[in-house]
Design a protein around this nucleic acid. Structure first.
Length: 947
RNA sequence: GCCCGAUUAGCUCAGCGGUAGAGCGCCUGCCUUACAAGCAGGAUGUCGCUGGUUCGAAACCGGCAUCGGGCACCA
């Protein structure tokens, strides 16, 4: 331990407080230099693999990533201690639209535009940004102590992964699962790109409902009707109306179906059609139909053969078809159309109307349903395969309830628009044979899908070469300028990172499918489902094993800020993990986050004072780290230079009561903790270890061992006896064992601190790591439930004595005789065996244990007295007794017992209880009642003695 | 409209069929040579409301209320 913060100071003692910053940096460097987390696919051991959800290179990480990192790292470190061959693979995501939006904003702020810059220069800038942001992110992940294999770090746009993207696209296309066509898509005018359904967020807004008069073209009907009234929230779209729909059974309009309307402002003749979609009860029961600008209208239009008339351009302005409104922005056009309708007498009324408006997640503007030629993935066949797998239990969701969310989304799934009119991303591997359509790309331009330009040329040559030459044209190819949805590459992550599509890739063979995916519920659709769908399409994967990319999916909640708000970049309320790491240490932050997570899958709230940069929760975890530091410090000062190895297993024959107790507790905690880690009960594991370490190890065991670790000489100047020295060795061995194993159990949660302390305690050489040790072996024989129960009574007895001393106001330095009276032989035996311990922990002058008969024979003394269970505790302190405090204490005992008697006897008096409850419950109840009654009687007796 | 969470001590949350728990905060006393980032002791709850099931409900079931989230969406 060179330069260790744990290095002994000149006087040979560790500092009193733990300073995490240097220690953490040192171990991170040591682990990495040694390649501690760089697994060998050829090595033995059961494989365990996790690919981390790659953070977007959009800047830096916030606390949510810190939380996820803490969870994943705890899991993989535990599995490593279990002896598995663990791969934890890191990486980042290029985040196509997010990064491009961000960069365009930057460029705009500098007074430029991406189009001025050009595609190549823009991409250069994007790569520079990636370098910067990616570096920041990797630095942050390192500071958290993430035990990933940095040598296998991947980026979704790196050459290997890009090749995987192309391969996946080509294969999907070959299977007929990718198609290109003109459909109504969600168009984001801000990004200038199509986006998928998932990237659209509905927002409730206050808008208006405009009612317009649409005149019938022909003569008024028999009943004098010469127009219909339609209502719309989007007047500007009326320029593209190609019909009006009514419900087929609506008697008001039945006679009008088939007639035509003259569209105001435009003059187009449009039919009145009958369609089930119309709700006769809403508004007037008449709906204007704009198939090119609304998904529902698109559906109505296609059922009735209505033409599609697009009146808006991709930039959100009205196009030439919009006539006098051409060139107006869509929101200006709305006002202008309303004004024109009003001027021409077609506006009937305007009502305020609250409705949902689709917004683009990234662009933060309303999306426009627009007709556009795009690439799509046919989703249903892939979803069906996933649903079938789910019926077979794959993957397993933790907590279980998320399975339903996943399944529901896979049911009634819509096709996935995967093309984006962006630059930053994977270029679509399709080449248009533009020589066929006069050098331009149109919907009609034929294309070939290929792995590269050369393959494209071969394919195009085969398909169009001859005909082309015959027509005297030179074959001319142009790659599709668009890129793929960022989630297309993320969807391949669990296998593209392992070497797919190379079927012989060692990592793929060894670690696919991965063991568990740990992620937030907010990307179950975006990511989890896309991974399972794409994996299903790409099988076989790996060595022909299961195709589902992960066995388990652990879904965690979101980290919310101190005001219970979701952290987000736009809200500016993200909490940066680094300042908290600087202040409290990465281990403290990790522990604090994981400890909060017990209610599986629930969001967690991190308290944080922005003004001071402090967090009480993290501070509590830091204090825990310091507690462990000091416990180890104590051990180093008291083990006489020995180590857990040199001390060996303590001789069972020489173990004292407290030794057997803590060893039994250790064994139980060891089992519980392993079970919790293995089943993703990480919060429970953290809480359990916190309580065990602080209460049972530090507050009780260390305090109890002190007496034996530092034996007083029998007489002045005389060396301790051989017996005492032997016991000292036992005490040392117990302390060393408990601490050493505790550090292993804590390691997944607090890797740096445990590594540091373990080295200090064991003297392990530098190149040896706790991170690569084994989980301590199970020792069944150490478990002793009866002993644990009776030791709990001893603890309770000590507490009562301490309480009496506090009530009476005894000074800490002041000794007092302690007298226990009990009729229960087992309890008396434990108290006698533990009398030396009691002496130490209660400042007893003497400890006497009597049975009631013997006690009755003694002269009654004025004493501090309390009763617990079947035990009377007396501190005979003639003259020093605060009688009032003592009476209050006894009265409290009586009140407590009385309340219990009332409850228990009431229950026992109920004949149904005695008759129907299990006999052991009834017996327990009776025993408790007897005890409470005895307790009340004893306390009353004591009270009477006081006079 | 459909679905899913949550509601327990001042705060953050465990508990999920047998007499209410932890951490933080609070009160009292302690610098007891591991630790004041600590030690010992203490106070604090109609477990959202309401029916039901049960010998017994904070826990299980039904309804309601409030808060949060997801999906769908009628112009």
């Amino acid at each position: 331990m060179t330069e260790a913060s744990a290095a002994p100071s000149p006087d040979g003692v560790l500092p009193k407080t733990y300073d995490p910053v240097l220690t953490e940096a040192r171990w991170q460097a040591a682990w990495e230099e040694a390649g501690a987390f760089h697994p060998d696919p050829a090595a033995g051991g059961e494989p365990f693999a996790v690919v981390i959800p790659p953070p977007n290179v959009t800047g830096s990480l916030h606390m949510g990533h810190g939380f996820e990192t803490a969870l994943i790292d705890t899991i993989v470190r535990f599995q490593r201690l279990q002896g598995k061959n663990v791969l934890c693979l890191p990486g980042t995501d290029h985040a196509s639209i997010a990064v491009q939006t961000l960069l365009e904003k930057q460029i705009k702020a500098e007074g430029g535009s991406k189009d001025d810059l050009g595609r190549d220069a823009f991409l250069e800038r994007a790569w520079a940004w990636k370098g910067e942001s990616g570096g920041t992110i990797v630095g942050q992940l390192r500071r958290l102590g993430y035990s990933v294999d940095w040598r296998r770090e991947r980026f979704t746009l790196d050459p290997g992964l890009s090749a995987a993207v192309v391969e996946a696209f080509v294969r999907l296309h070959e299977q007929g699962l990718i198609y290109r066509g003109e459909y109504l898509v969600n168009w984001c005018p801000a990004s200038g790109s199509a986006v998928s359904d998932l990237e659209v967020e509905m927002k409730e807004l206050d808008g208006h409902l405009w009612h317009f008069r649409y005149p019938l073209s022909g003569e008024p009907a028999a009943d004098g009707i010469d127009h219909l009234v339609v209502a719309t929230t989007r007047p500007e779209t009326l320029l593209g109306d190609t019909g009006v729909a009514v419900h087929p059974t609506d008697p008001r309009y039945a006679a009008l179906v088939g007639q035509t309307i003259t569209l105001p402002l435009v003059g187009r003749q449009i039919p009145i059609v009958a369609d089930e979609h119309v709700d006769p009860a809403f508004g007037t029961g008449c709906v204007k139909v704009t198939p090119a600008h609304d998904p529902n209208d698109f559906a109505i239009g296609s059922r009735h053969g209505l033409p599609l008339i697009t009146v808006m351009a991709k930039d959100g302005r009205m196009n030439g078809v919009a006539g006098r409104f051409a060139g107006l922005d869509r929101f200006e056009a709305r006002k202008a159309v309303v004004a024109a309708m009003q001027a021409e007498g077609f506006l009937v009324k305007v009502e305020p109307h609250r409705h949902s408006v689709p917004f683009s997640d990234r662009g933060k503007v309303p999306v426009e349903p627009l007709l556009s030629t795009q690439w799509f993935v046919k989703a249903e066949p892939l979803a069906a395969r996933c649903r079938e797998a789910l019926d077979g239990g794959a993957p397993r969701f933790v907590p279980e309830r998320w399975e339903k969310v996943y399944r529901d989304w896979l049911t009634d799934i819509r096709d996935w628009c995967i093309s984006r009119q962006l630059w930053w991303g994977h270029r679509i591997p399709a080449w248009f044979v533009v020589s066929e359509t006069g050098g331009v790309i149109s919907e009609a331009t034929p294309y070939v899908v290929a792995r590269d330009g050369a393959e494209a040329r071969v394919k195009a040559e085969a398909a169009y070469g001859e005909a082309s030459r015959a027509a005297g044209r030179e074959l001319q190819l142009e790659q599709d300028p668009d890129v793929l949805d960022t989630w297309f590459s993320s969807g391949l992550w669990p296998f593209s990172t392992l070497g797919w599509p190379d079927p012989n890739a060692a990592d793929l063979g060894r670690w696919y499918p991965t063991s568990v995916l740990v992620t937030g519920f907010d990307i179950i659709f975006f990511w989890v489902a896309r991974m399972t769908m794409l994996a299903g399409a790409m099988r076989p994967l790996g060595a022909g094993k299961a195709w589902m990319p992960f066995a388990d999916v652990m879904i965690h909640g979101l980290v919310r800020d101190e005001n219970n708000r979701k952290m987000s970049k736009s809200a500016g309320n993200g909490i940066d993990p680094l300042p908290l790491i600087e202040r409290y240490g990465a281990d403290a932050l990790r522990f604090a986050l994981v400890r909060e997570v017990a209610g599986a899958g629930q969001d967690i709230r991190l308290d944080y004072d922005r003004a001071s940069g402090s967090s009480a929760t993290v501070e509590a975890a830091r204090n825990f780290a310091n507690k462990l530091w000091n416990a180890t410090r104590f051990a180093l000062m008291n083990l006489g230079g020995e180590t857990p190895a040199s001390l060996g297993t303590p001789d069972p024959a020489r173990l004292q009561l407290a030794d057997r107790w803590i060893l039994s507790r250790l064994e139980r905690v060891k089992r519980e903790t392993a079970q919790r880690y293995a089943s993703y009960g990480l919060g429970e594991a953290a809480k359990g270890l916190y309580e065990f370490a602080w209460n049972e190890v530090c507050d009780w065991t260390i305090e109890l061992l002190k007496r034996r670790l530092n034996p007083r000489p029998a007489a002045e100047g005389e060396p301790p006896s051989a017996e005492v020295l032997a016991d000292q060795q036992v005490a040392r061995a117990v302390l060393a064992k408990v601490l050493a194993e505790l550090l292993v159990l804590l390691h997944p949660l607090m890797p740096h601190l445990s590594e540091e302390l373990w080295h200090g305690l064991t003297g392990a050489p530098e190149g040896t790591f706790l991170a690569l040790q084994s989980w301590p072996a199970a020792e069944e024989a150490a478990l002793d439930a009866d002993l644990e129960a009776s030791f709990a009574e001893l603890i309770e007895a000590i507490r009562v004595v301490r309480n009496l001393r506090a009530v009476a106001g005894l000074k800490p330095s002041q000794g007092a005789p302690v007298l226990f009276i009990t009729g229960r032989q087992e309890l008396a035996a434990v108290l006698r065996e533990g009398s030396a311990d009691i002496t130490t922990l209660t400042k007893a002058e003497s400890v006497t244990v009597l049975d009631p008969a013997a006690a009755a024979a003694r002269p009654a003394a004025r004493a501090l007295a309390a009763v617990t269970g079947e035990l009377q505790v007396l501190l005979p302190l003639e003259g020093l007794v605060d009688l009032d405090a003592l009476r209050a204490r006894l009265e409290k005992d009586i009140a407590k017992a009385t309340k219990e008697i009332k409850g228990l006897s009431g229950r026992l008096a109920n004949p149904n209880f005695a008759g129907k409850a299990p006999p052991e419950v009834v017996a327990e109840c009776q025993a408790n009642l007897a005890e409470a009654e005895a307790q009340a009687a004893l306390a009353r007796g004591r009270l009477a003695d006081l006079g």
